[in-house]
Nucleic acid binder design. Structure first.
Lengths: 243, 243
DNA sequence: ACCTGAACACCGTTCAAGT
DNA sequence: ACCTGAACACCGTTCAAGT
């Protein structure tokens, strides 16, 4: 991931390579199948272990066969990312909901999908992400913003701010969850360890209570609450206007 | 970067390995010098080209010598990240400034440093980032929040939300800047290309005006303005309270 | 205590050759 | 039109050996 080549690479979407199709067949190779398998392998093994060679093995094919359908690994990951973006559930826009409710639904759906495919949010940071499914998502978001009271010229900037927050929140959360999975610790154990390690460097931080929260809610509930809170603050601020 | 090993790795900071020091010497190897050189190579070559072998070459030493001082590449990157975190300019806290002004200054300083070391923000996403300099930063942020009107128990969550936004904004921005540098295009050319490519998939988006902004300000000014705006909205929302 | 060389088990990708 | 095998130029890291 993110290993940018020495010479720059054009996005698959900017200069699309033809998705070559074979003659007849059924269980034969084609780009769609390759991308679907890549997503499956990425989900199962993570992007650290994912390789063209492993993918080829899964396809029962030589590594180099894959290169007939995709130009290189980066292109493949960009295609895989857009495939996953296609899973994001878009809210229906004519349900009479407030624009904020719809935007929140959109943000939640994005987060849910990214948490389900932790490798995807790392791709999201690397690539332009302007494939068809991402565009469909952006279209929906723009339509929601169009119902906001914001002046027309501020809408896209506002939308960007919202999704920069969503991206930052989800990336952090996803990393945290992966750490837990890797080390096999519970969220509480891990939080205690991190706090302890920071407190060793700075006694001030312990009493600052970086990590203690209302005790009787699960970590997951707290994350959901914090996520929604950030959105709520942004919406409030946006409506209040900018000086 | 981000290639997580098959078996989980403990953070350098959670179980610190001793920074071995050699006997006398002057231009000899030691952990400090290794980390400083790593930062220099990362700045010059980017994290894609950075390797233990390249670093060793720069140090005029065998690749394996480095492993006497750091356990592995991930540890080294975590150390490099904290070194860079040490460059962040913290605002002085007794200048009678509003807490929002100080928090904004902190966010701006963080962003400035990360933009100056594009590889660093990718590390930031990967590692726990609880080294001494990061802790120092968090300490400062907590001290600023302590002057906010927010209820004590909400302060750390609010701080997290702010820096999740800052992280998302800066990561996106940094990626954008790298794309420009790689392809040698101007910001305007690149924006036009991306918009065009999206519009090809969705005519609705073009008239939606995803990317057109007040024409007479530079892209850089616009980014600064948008960054501050998001912060302002969050502050406004935070003060208005959560339902 | 520190540094080396050789080797292992991987990568992504090129290229010429097969069918 | 599609797929292969061999090879190239890399990785991070282990391990036994040197000083």
């Amino acid at each position: 991931m993110g290993k940018r080549a020495a010479q720059p690479r054009e996005s698959v979407w900017l200069s699309p390579r033809p998705a070559r199709k074979h003659r007849a067949g059924e269980s034969e190779l084609d780009r769609e199948k390759i991308v679907a398998t890549a997503v499956r392998v990425l989900d199962a093994e993570g992007d650290a272990k994912f390789s063209m060679r492993l993918l080829a093995e899964e396809l029962h094919v030589t590594p180099m066969s894959v290169y007939w359908y995709v130009a290189n690994k980066d292109d493949l990951l960009e295609l895989a990312l857009d495939a996953v973006a296609g899973e994001i559930e878009l809210p229906s826009l004519d349900d009479g909901e407030d624009w904020r409710a719809d935007l929140r639904a959109l943000a939640r759906a994005w987060r849910r999908t990214m948490i389900a495919h932790p490798w995807a949010i790392r791709c999201y940071g690397e690539y332009l992400n302007i494939g068809p499914s991402s565009v469909r998502f952006t279209e929906c978001a723009q339509a929601v913003m169009a119902r906001s009271p914001l002046p027309l010229k501020d809408r896209s900037a506002a939308l960007n701010v919202v999704f920069q927050y969503v991206y930052g929140f989800t990336a952090t959360e996803s990393r945290w969850l992966e750490h837990l999975a890797e080390t096999g610790r519970t969220a509480e154990e891990f939080a205690a360890e991190v706090t302890g390690s920071m407190a060793a460097l700075s006694p001030a931080l312990e009493q600052g209570g970086l990590l203690d929260r209302d005790g009787d809610r699960s970590m997951e509930e707290l994350r959901d609450r914090d996520f929604d809170r950030g959105l709520h603050w942004l919406f409030t601020g946006m409506v209040a206007g900018t000086p």
